[in-house]
Design a protein around this nucleic acid. Structure first.
Lengths: 221, 221
DNA sequence: GCGCTAATGGGATTCGAGATTCGTTAAGCT
DNA sequence: AGCTTAACGAATCTCGAATCCCATTAGCGC
């Protein structure tokens, strides 16, 4: 998976080859899924020698890992609208769109599957989502500054709370996801955030119905 | 994956072989992960002929699929304590324990990975989690009847909301999970549930700050 | 434009997962 | 206990993915 081969000649052809191969990989993932990935076929589709694909990426997992890095680099920062609910809904919708898009959805699923098999892939996946989450926390932080959410709100966890139920349905429980599920995720996260459930006042439970809850963390683990 | 081969002679040896192979599969998953699954090695470890494993399960995915069915069958119903918060915390802790256990965690990861490659595995995974979710909804329903949660609360979605952030961190964003993450999940879900965020009063948004939100579902999709 | 060499490309080769064959064992039934 | 045959197991075969070899192409510095 030596993506910048000798660190000496990464321009021109090398870059074109990488682009063509990663493009072909996404196409193949959309059509046959992770398990159906065929290196030979990807090489053909990309108009590239099979040897080159094996040499540079080593195998399907290397391809997906590099694809993750590529997608992470393509990240774009969104301008905030000043309306937290609209921002979160936009986030939920973008996650929903990504997961339901045949090509991108299959790519995300493959990335997740690859991460369960390979440490480098897991690291790349972590970096990918760290970046994605980071793109949205700013809007939540602004809402905190505007006073819409309690001070100390863990903005990254609010964003995770939007994605989590959608990913849970898409990759874990394998239930259908739609705009209703996305709206529910926003409602839950926003309601909890307003109530201070994402504030990390360590030692004091936020659970309103049980103010006497002890200072210790959760039992067991 | 013909688990009950001829439906004629599933007793004695056949059952022992299945048990030994599934046991060996879980061991192998804990040690080498999904990608490192080696049918030959599993057969050796189970003290069974390689041919038998191929004939009955067809391949790694078939093994994992059968393993899911087996684990689903081993499900146990928990008695409710009458304390919703304690129930949810118990749920979160059991999920946390499962995901952090080397052997069981690897098995769950493998199940998720297999589902991204194969339709039968995806169906089995869906059935597995449908059952797991169903084991816990009863406690939430009781809380609704006790009046602790609003009538109409979607109990299955409350349970999903507990698991989702933990699975999200474990398999998607690849962030560490601990008892604090579990406690946070419970707090968020419980807070949102009490505020009625899991009530499906279609056409009226629950979002407290925006009572004028229109009746339509979420835009786009 | 020219030379150097990183990088690619086609094809032969290796290697192992998965399928096949056929003899052996033991479950189920009387 | 004895019979029938479902199910298992050892050895073997096959085919395609992964690797290797060497010729060819084209970045990059001058």
């Amino acid at each position: 998976m030596d993506v910048s081969p000798g660190t000496l000649r990464p321009g021109g052809r090398t870059a074109r080859v990488r682009e063509a191969v990663l493009e072909a990989t996404q196409d193949a993932l959309g059509e046959h899924g992770f398990h159906g990935l065929n290196m030979d076929q990807i090489a053909d589709r990309a108009g590239v020698g099979k040897t080159t694909v094996y040499r540079r990426w080593g195998g399907p997992i290397g391809l997906i890992t590099d694809l993750m890095a590529d997608l992470a680099d393509r990240s774009v920062a969104h301008a905030d609208t000043g309306d937290l609910e609209a921002d979160l809904l936009e986030n939920a919708t973008s996650v929903l769109d990504a997961l339901t898009d045949p090509r991108l959805g299959a790519t995300l699923q493959a990335m997740i599957a690859a991460a369960t098999c390979d440490d480098a892939a897991a690291t790349a996946l972590h970096a990918f989502y760290a970046r994605r989450i980071g793109e949205w926390t700013h809007r939540v932080d602004l809402a905190v500054h505007r006073g819409e959410l309690p001070a100390g709100t863990d903005s990254a966890d609010v964003i995770r709370a939007i994605s989590a139920p959608l990913y849970y349905r898409a990759v874990v429980s394998r239930e259908p996801i739609d705009s209703h599920a996305a709206a529910r995720a926003v409602t839950v996260a926003l309601t909890a955030a307003r109530a201070g459930a994402f504030v990390d006042d360590r030692g004091r439970s936020v659970m309103s119905g049980h103010p006497d809850v002890g200072p210790g963390p959760v039992p067991a683990g």
